[in-house]
Simulated assay, not measured.
Amino acid sequence: MSLRRQVLLFGVGGAIGLVVDAGVVQALVSWGHWNPYLARVVSFLAAATATWLWNRRYTFAQRHSGRSLATEWAHWIALMSVGAVVNYAAYAAILLFYPWLHRWPAVAVAASSAAASLVNFATARGVLFKRAKTST
């Protein structure tokens, strides 16, 4: 699969992750009355799991990690945590500068997600799914 196609599919996975991330954080804040900073930790785990499922099935279908599913998921979460640090820093800064977004954290999630996308793709492709699948 071409790099261009992988980037496109990774973008689709990112869009799915964004919907999950924003939906979970908004639901926890609006209905659960959670703190928007703590809610973001939970929403990250949900979104990262959704993107892992998408990307292992579609984006990196012709590549493998050489790990069990549980180990691969844990490695994915660890790698996506690098991008999450970038993402969370931008999210916190947005909430700091625009306090009215505490009621609408999904907006801050969307704005901060773009910053982490490139970091996430590079680590997913270059570290976890770095080997092409071979026929057995």
Rank of each mutant, 00 (worst) to 15 (best):
M1I: 13
S2T: 08
S2W: 01
Q6S: 11
Q6H: 04
V7L: 12
V7F: 06
L8Q: 09
L9C: 12
L9A: 14
F10C: 01
V12C: 09
V12R: 07
G13Q: 05
G13F: 00
A15N: 08
I16W: 03
G17D: 05
D21I: 05
V24L: 13
V24F: 08
V24S: 09
V25F: 03
V25W: 04
Q26P: 02
A27I: 05
V29P: 00
W31F: 15
W31S: 10
W31Q: 10
G32I: 03
H33N: 13
H33Q: 14
N35C: 03
P36R: 07
L38Y: 14
L38M: 11
R40T: 02
S43L: 04
F44V: 13
L45I: 05
A47Y: 00
A47F: 00
A48Y: 00
A50E: 01
T51W: 00
T51I: 01
W52I: 08
L53P: 09
W54I: 03
W54K: 03
N55E: 02
R56E: 05
T59F: 03
F60R: 14
Q62K: 12
Q62E: 11
G66L: 04
G66N: 06
A70E: 12
A70R: 15
T71M: 11
A74L: 15
A74R: 11
W76E: 04
I77G: 07
A78K: 14
L79A: 11
S81F: 13
V82I: 14
A84N: 13
A84M: 10
V85K: 06
V86T: 12
A89S: 15
A93P: 02
L95M: 05
L96N: 10
F97T: 11
P99H: 04
W100I: 15
H102A: 01
R103N: 12
P105A: 06
P105H: 08
A110T: 14
S112C: 07
S112R: 10
S113V: 07
S113K: 10
A114V: 15
A114D: 00
A114L: 15
A116H: 03
A116V: 02
S117G: 09
V119G: 02
F121W: 00
F121E: 03
F121A: 08
T123D: 03
T123C: 11
A124M: 12
V127S: 06
F129L: 02
T136C: 05
